[in-house]
Amino acid sequence: MLTPPKYWREIPQRYRLEAAKCAQCGKVFFPPRLICDACKGEEFETVVLPREGKIVSFTEVHTPASNFSDEAPFAVGIIDLGNELTILAQIVDCDPGEVKIGAPMRLEFRKLQKDGESGVLCYGYKAVPAR
């Protein structure tokens, strides 16, 4: 479960897909890192990732963590956003059997988790089939 402070710290990434681009070599990190693993640069600019891409690979989850038991079975996939950027996301709004490698996807704003009936609601991105 995401605690409120951890969830709050990740808002720029989960809500707005903010990534860090190394000012020295241009490599993009999502989530952001403090040191570039390519050139050891320590200065980054904020860039926003695109919201559309294609499925590179995926897996079906039939026995999820307890927080996600109502959603099983579901797919989790790697989405290619272009420019050598990939992102891992839950795939929703379709049956796992309909998911295909290469299929166009869009990242939408969705509820990720809820802490029981009285805890905090956590929001972020999930992948849905593009029209």
Binding site: V92, F109, R110, K111, L121, Y123
Partner: peptide, 9 residues
């Protein structure tokens, strides 16, 4: 709405 959709999303 899907289970992960609400007024905010």
């Amino acid at each position: 709405p899907s289970p992960d959709q609400d007024v905010i999303t």
